[in-house]
Design a protein around this nucleic acid. Structure first.
Length: 268
DNA sequence: GATCTATGTAGAT
DNA sequence: TCTACCTAGATCG
């Protein structure tokens, strides 16, 4: 379930459970076996997220770069950990807990320079305290690409995925196909500030909730979202259902291979 | 049991 | 714009 908030939450968890300790690293599936052997028994010094990328730093041995892609997931255990089930790419066992990594898009051992090459390509991450939104605001307000495409472009903003994109555009009544330069500076700033809040909330809760209290199905009587991702949302994957605000049927189309959801009435 | 889908990205065409 | 890739759970029959 990986948008930026998931990775930041994992980084925080891994930092608390493993950082500062020697850890056992293995690859039950075998596809990370050589790297795991190098790392096994060394100290994991830090866990950090940048956008949708997760980095595990090991004392003197380099940095493990993990990108979950669409399907990747970590499973966390208290020790004693069970035998691995299924395709476990990487297992880390620390003093009190263990974690299994399955199905990542990337799991590789890199040098500091290689890590920097990755982070240099990313736009500002709304979840990082050191983020400077200025480059993102300039990119958005000068581009003729649809705002929906810009929000998902990791070179523009790091960490925003399909759910946050759909939801933040709904919250600001912006049509997803509106060119970035037509969004304007002020609304672009509002989008950034809202993403900072929404995504920080996502890190705390471990799920994406974007519906304002006054718009909740309990208050409005509108049908609640029917989705399995866990949070309360306005439009994401609600195609064919009534908009929580106006009752108009939520629309869906594909943009650059990803599904886009919006309310044709509320977003113009 | 087969098929579909998914909060993603890189690379080919 | 397309395809490939990594995996598991939901859905279909």
């Amino acid at each position: 379930m990986p948008e930026g908030h998931t990775l930041h939450r994992l980084a925080r968890l891994h930092q608390a459970r493993y950082a500062g300790h020697p850890v056992a690293v293995s690859s039950p599936q075998g596809r990370f076996a050589a790297e795991a052997a190098l790392l096994d028994g060394t100290v994991l010094t830090a866990a950090e997220a940048y956008g949708k990328h997760l980095f595990h730093r090991y004392d003197g041995q380099g940095v493990v770069h993990i990108h979950l892609g669409l399907y990747g997931a970590f499973t966390e255990f208290e020790r004693p950990e069970p035998d691995p089930i299924g395709q476990v790419r990487m297992r880390i066992v620390g003093p009190t807990h263990a974690t299994d990594l399955r199905g990542p898009n990337r799991c590789e051992l890199l040098t500091d320079d290689e890590v920097e090459e990755i982070t240099d390509r990313l736009g500002p991450d709304p979840l990082r305290a050191d983020a400077d939104p200025e480059p993102a605001l300039r990119r958005i307000t000068s581009s003729s690409s649809p705002i929906a495409a810009l929000l998902m472009d990791q070179k523009v903003l790091a960490g925003v995925g399909n759910v946050y994109r759909a939801e933040v555009l709904f919250r600001h009544n912006i049509n997803p196909m509106l060119p970035g330069k037509s969004v304007g500076r002020e609304r672009a700033e509002q989008l950034w500030r809202d993403l900072v809040e929404l995504m920080a909330d996502g890190v705390e809760r471990g799920r994406i909730d974007t519906v304002r209290p006054e718009h909740s199905p309990e208050v409005t009587g509108r049908a609640p979202r029917q989705d399995r991702h866990g949070g309360e949302v306005y439009v994401y994957r609600r195609v064919g259902n009534p908009c929580l605000l106006c009752g108009t049927t939520v629309a869906m189309r594909t943009l650059q291979g990803r599904k886009l959801y919006w309310c044709p009435q509320c977003q113009y």
